[in-house]
Simulated assay, not measured.
Amino acid sequence: MDVKEEDSNMQKLAFIGLGNMGMPMARNLVQAGYYVYGLNRSKAKEDNFEELGGQRAESLAHIAENADVIMTCLPQPEDVEQMLIGDNGLLQMNIKTPLIIDFSTVSPSLHVRIAKEASARGARYLDAPVSGGTAGAESGTLAIMCGGEEVAFEEAKPIFDVLGKNITHTGPVGNGTKVKLINQYMVGMHTVAVGEALHLADQSGIDKSLLYSVLSNGFAQSKIFDRHYGDFISENKDEPGFALDLLLKDLGLADDMADESNVSLKAGDFVRSLFQQADENGYGKKDMSALYQYVKHIEN
């Protein structure tokens, strides 16, 4: 869609962070007919976004002054903090008082801080972490867990409907991320279970494809088992759909959340330490399913 900014009266969106998740999400919004600015640290990604029909953002300040809805999807908490409330961040600029939606996975307390600053500037803020990986981002079938005021959630719902299929308003700002971190805690647990179970199969002479076929029809079936074995391990792929070091980051955030809630995640301590060791041994930039490779490595 070739839409000239000066001729367009349509709602203008901005998407900051055109990575493995952000690019297909922003593309889906363009394909749904939205006018979307794209901003990314790597300018090559902005070139790609233009080729997909998006609009290259002139600058963060241009987004602040022109976008009705601003979305961020960034890898680390410090990236989100710097982009939104840092010294040169969005909320220090002359903003149009938009709706701001963060799809990243950071800490609930950071979302509360950002929401307070956004409110002081007349903006509405939602934390809306997603689950479903790159496949869900590509197909527009993400699960979206959204925290914030209900009126802002309803305002964002048409956008969410383009990006996901399981969309839940979880309550106040920060609650979306609390649900996501519990999700990631369980993803980490299941990932370790898959890695160790497949290694046990290897060492005991059981064919992995046979094991997968049998267990997938019983109580051991899980989406993580389907994903890790079906899409990565059986295909000898470890190019990241979701990198191991990003799951390690999320497990750390879940541990922080547990501390703040006076909860001891005893099994989680072991899981996080195993991911930490895998990261330190060079597996961090591989797909999270590569924990299976690390489990085999430390046994040999």
Results as ranks from 00 to 15, higher is better:
residue 59 S to H: 09
residue 67 A to T: 08
residue 46 E to T: 15
residue 71 M to C: 14
residue 97 T to F: 05
residue 135 A to P: 04
residue 150 E to S: 11
residue 131 S to V: 02
residue 35 Y to M: 13
residue 76 Q to N: 12
residue 94 N to T: 15
residue 108 P to A: 04
residue 72 T to M: 03
residue 121 R to K: 15
residue 138 E to G: 00
residue 97 T to P: 03
residue 139 S to R: 15
residue 150 E to I: 13
residue 108 P to V: 06
residue 136 G to E: 11
residue 111 H to R: 00
residue 89 G to S: 00
residue 140 G to A: 08
residue 32 A to M: 09
residue 75 P to Y: 00
residue 39 L to M: 09
residue 22 G to N: 02
residue 146 C to N: 05
residue 99 L to A: 04
residue 39 L to T: 00
residue 106 V to T: 14
residue 27 R to T: 15
residue 143 A to V: 10
residue 95 I to C: 12
residue 38 G to P: 07
residue 99 L to I: 05
residue 113 R to W: 02
residue 120 A to L: 12
residue 49 F to R: 06
residue 112 V to S: 09
residue 78 E to A: 10
residue 52 L to N: 10
residue 69 V to E: 11
residue 32 A to P: 14
residue 75 P to S: 03
residue 118 A to Y: 08
residue 149 E to N: 12
residue 64 A to D: 10
residue 132 G to Q: 12
residue 121 R to E: 10
residue 105 T to D: 13
residue 115 A to F: 02
residue 131 S to T: 12
residue 147 G to V: 04
residue 57 A to P: 02
residue 44 A to T: 14
residue 99 L to Q: 00
residue 44 A to D: 15
residue 24 P to H: 10
residue 143 A to E: 14
residue 28 N to Y: 13
residue 75 P to D: 06
residue 123 A to P: 07
residue 110 L to P: 09
residue 138 E to S: 05
residue 122 G to P: 11
residue 72 T to G: 02
residue 126 L to S: 01
residue 35 Y to D: 00
residue 42 S to G: 10
residue 70 I to C: 08
residue 94 N to W: 08
residue 53 G to L: 03
residue 80 V to P: 06
residue 95 I to A: 01
residue 124 R to N: 11
residue 91 L to W: 07
residue 56 R to D: 09
residue 37 Y to A: 00
